[in-house]
Design a binder for these strands. Sequence first.
DNA 1: GAGCTGACAATAG
DNA 2: GCTATTGCCAGCT
Length: 104
Amino acid sequence: MTFYDQVKALTKRIPHGKVASYGQIVALTSTPRAARVVGWALHTMDVESGIPWHRVINSKGYISTTCPTHTANLQKQLLTKEGVTATKRNGLWWIDMKNYQWQN
DNA sequence: GAGCTGACAATAG
DNA sequence: GCTATTGCCAGCT
């Protein structure tokens, strides 16, 4: 079980209609300080991988992806599709963590 | 095989 | 409260 596998497993555990921050995911892994690696792990998880990568956002509740294949707009659409309300703030999509954050 | 890069978070100033 | 710096691991060059 590598760190990558843990991220993958934890991401799949995020319930429908909820979101989780990097901090949450990282805290549940064996390496709580490797927040950056989560980004890489999610990057390799394609849309067709069956992994709900769009349910993972940064600690501030913003969608901070810079990947051309995983645009913020795409992520927002997927979240909205699941009942998660995303608001436009500072040109970025923002999710209300108090209402939609995954509580283990 | 060594070094660089990258969807970030936490701590210090 | 905000800005700057450090740590971490996997994949790519």
